[in-house]
């Protein structure tokens, strides 16, 4: 089973990122279960999405204990937050930040990777909507290979600016694949 925790602040699209990842794996014929939880959907509040992907039906209805990947939309969520409580030495922690990964070494012994998703999103006229870039980067880091499907799903599910979202997603994906995060 592949397990993701995605966290952002209300309005950043973390919930939609979970849904988008789920849709990609679902369309590949895998079993998925994704749910978001929030304490009242307010802009700025932490919003988490939990995604499980497996080759058999998923029955667990509880928090993810040992995620394979944590996607963090905003570094301010890391300080004093609970996001990294579930991380282990094996967990990939992808952070949206212009700073290099070594700046986050103090957080603990995780596989930290950063990507400047804000700059990529702005380049593609997406403003502060970084979710598609982070989805592309996380799949790239996990070695995902069905690029055509990823492009199709992002294009079909983007509520606005499908072309910009596809371009940002693929840029995130390529950077991650090249190991240049």
């Amino acid at each position: 089973m592949l397990q993701f925790i995605i966290q952002g602040r209300g309005g950043q699209g973390a919930q939609l990122a979970g849904k988008l990842l789920a849709d990609v794996f679902f369309q590949e014929g895998r079993y998925v279960l994704v749910y978001a939880s929030y304490g009242g959907a307010r802009r700025g509040n932490p919003v988490s999405s939990s995604l499980r992907v497996d080759d058999k039906p998923i029955r667990l209805r509880c928090d993810i204990e040992h995620p394979d990947a944590i996607v963090c939309f905003d570094p301010s969520l890391l300080e004093g937050g609970k996001l990294l409580n579930a991380a282990t030495g094996q967990t990939l922690v992808l952070i949206n930040s212009s700073l290099p990964a070594k700046e986050f070494a103090h957080l603990g012994d995780f596989k930290v990777v950063t990507i400047d998703a804000r700059t990529i999103a702005q380049k593609h006229q997406l403003g502060r909507i970084v979710n598609t870039t982070l989805v592309g980067a996380s799949l790239g880091l996990l070695g995902y290979s069905n690029v055509e499907l990823l492009e199709k799903v992002v294009g079909e599910t983007s509520p606005l600016k499908p072309e910009g979202n596809v371009a940002a997603c693929m840029e995130g994906y390529r950077i991650a694949r090249k190991g240049s995060c």
Binding site: Y31, L33, R61
Partner: peptide, 10 residues
């Protein structure tokens, strides 16, 4: 709530 209401699956 959430575990079923907002959980997406096939």
């Amino acid at each position: 709530a959430f575990y079923v209401s907002h959980a997406m699956e096939a």
